[in-house]
Nucleic acid binder design. Structure first.
Lengths: 335, 335
DNA sequence: ACAGTACGTGAGAGCGCTCTCACGACGCGG
DNA sequence: CCGCGTCGTGAGAGCGCTCTCACGTACTGT
């Protein structure tokens, strides 16, 4: 019943009748080992159930082996955000072919910042990817100070910390969405924007303004939602109450857009007949609406994947610069 | 510009004028070091920016240092499930005070099972926690075969693999919800159940049946939804069409319940006046409804936290048995 | 005054692995 | 038949850390 020591290279070597070095070569697929020796080793490995000790290996080859994925779980919003999961998947896929492990670090800014910072300083990982949908929470400044190779997903709000980021072009996304409404002939275009403290919301709103400005239309019909379904419904209701002549609306998230569409229909407006709607995210869940939402692609997984590429560059000692990925409109039936 | 070697214990020792052992003691907060020595070391540590090498440390103290958190991302459903995030947070919190790192492993069953299994066999971590909201995907059997200390969150559907699990008492939850409707005087009670392939849905449905059976009421008003808002709305619509005399509904998730409430209201039924509704999850997002949902607590974070406790027992070599945590009704205004 | 007992410290042996280096056994051309 | 290159292999030196053990040194009690 004693938990017997795990077999080591030494044990395998003894069993196979070769030296440690040879076993190491076989395990690491070094070609210059005679076939007979290789087989003997392989047999010994399986017989003993040998598994290389990760720590020992990491100790000697000083290569990076793990990256922290920091999710500053600031509030309930992030929490229910499917995009977070999508990004995690993107990172996971981007790291798939590398020996890098993805160490998840959750923490609520404010409450956990100290702990988080201490942990990051602890040198547990060789790099970090920060999902920063939010206002600066102290973590980013800590990271840039520590000097840990870091990539931010989503342009950090507030002053630049000098950390490279990947982001999607939310300004252009908002513009494309609104351009579509304009091109359709809408003259009175409102927007259900996202939370004011998120860079993505602000950018989409800016894009909406730019498009309207270029078209010479008014840009005063704005209501903010919290990116949730219910928030979208309420914002749409307020928007409609304040501007009864609305014939087009850009809603800054699909979840909100789906709710907005049903709110409009409940109010007796045909979509897109009376009011055209463009959403944002191209999220699968919100594509169940009838008619299917016209929306803007917002591939969080691609962004995340890009972040892993950048981080690997950093780990290799090469400098990287921030990237802003293009978005595009996804055709649907609501605009 | 050469990437100079990171400072080691040796360097710190030299700078502080003590031995490696003393530095090690200071770093590890060993009390038996004279204050003066301790200060000298601390100073040297900060001056040099010394950070202990995790690999070396792990090599010598053969203590477990990381656990895999396997999220079998089977389909879109999990993806948008806020409960997953809640569980991740619970695990994160449960591991907070331990040296264990949380290594996230995402993988879609089927497509990624091989890769996942290979990875798990690779011995990258010392244990695993599996978020198993789904039908068996091969990962669990692999884990029980490998012998890696593992705890499942959510009772695995299908045959027991001998792996310990934590779960919430969904049968009792369904029963409590329905008992409430019965106690309120409802005589014609339907349910919007969850997906048929999930243990949690099946258990809640079973609880609903038990309660109705005990009360001598019919249990034929059943519709299934996919746990999404839209799915709940549609299921409610079908349920109402099939059973116009409904005076009570147990909806197996808050997201669906919120949609069901608005669907009922749209159909001209007062809630809870004409039809009483009980949801499930006590999710913050779905608590925004007016009136506030009467629902069943479903603390994923507590379950996850319990899983970390169990895993730590396993890692310490002690046997553990599965646990089913109690749930309770949360008062609201819809029943 | 001396043994006994802390207590703080340093020397040094590993932990399991990789990797360089050297060495013997070949095969080749001259 | 000798020198040379090639190939497969083993010996052994670390990687950075922890931890045991032994050794002062400074207290106690008698």
């Amino acid at each position: 019943m004693s938990t017997r020591r795990a077999p080591t290279l030494e044990d395998v070597a003894a069993r196979a009748g070769v030296s440690r070095a040879t076993v190491s070569r076989v395990v690491n697929a070094d070609p210059r080992v005679r076939a007979t020796a290789r087989e003997a080793v392989s047999r010994a490995v399986t017989e003993l159930g040998y598994r290389p000790n990760r720590a020992a290996r990491a100790l000697v080859k000083r290569a990076p082996d793990s990256v922290a994925v920091v999710v500053p779980e600031t509030d309930q919003r992030v929490f229910s955000d499917p995009v977070i999961m999508e990004m995690l998947r993107g990172i996971s896929e981007g790291l798939e072919e590398t020996p890098l492990q993805m160490v998840l670090v959750l923490g609520r800014a404010g409450r956990d910042t100290d702990r988080l910072e201490r942990w990051l300083r602890g040198g547990h990982t060789d790099g970090a990817i920060v999902l920063s949908a939010h206002l600066d929470d102290g973590v980013t400044s800590a990271l840039s100070e520590i000097g840990l190779p870091t990539v931010m997903i989503g342009r950090p709000p507030g002053p630049e910390q000098g950390l490279p980021f990947v982001d999607l072009d939310n300004v252009d996304g908002g513009r494309q969405a609104t351009d579509r409404l304009v091109a359709r002939g809408c003259r009175r275009i409102g927007t259900v924007a996202g939370p004011v403290d998120m860079a993505a919301s602000r950018d989409r709103l800016a894009g909406w303004r730019e498009s309207l400005g270029a078209a010479g239309l008014a840009d005063d019909a704005v209501e903010h939602g919290d990116f949730s379904s219910e928030g979208g419904r309420l914002a749409m209701r307020r928007l409609l109450a304040a501007h009864r002549d609305l014939d087009g609306v850009f809603v800054a998230s699909d979840l909100m857009a789906a709710a907005a569409v049903s709110e409009l229909q409940a109010a007796g407006r045909a979509v897109p007949g009376d009011v055209a709607v463009v959403g944002y995210d191209d999220s699968p869940a919100a594509q169940l609406t009838v008619p299917r939402l016209t929306t803007v692609a917002n591939p969080g997984d691609r962004m995340a994947r890009e972040a892993t590429v950048m981080l690997r560059e950093l780990l290799a000692g090469r400098p990287v610069s921030s990237r802003v990925l293009p978005t595009h409109l996804v055709e649907g039936g609501t605009a």
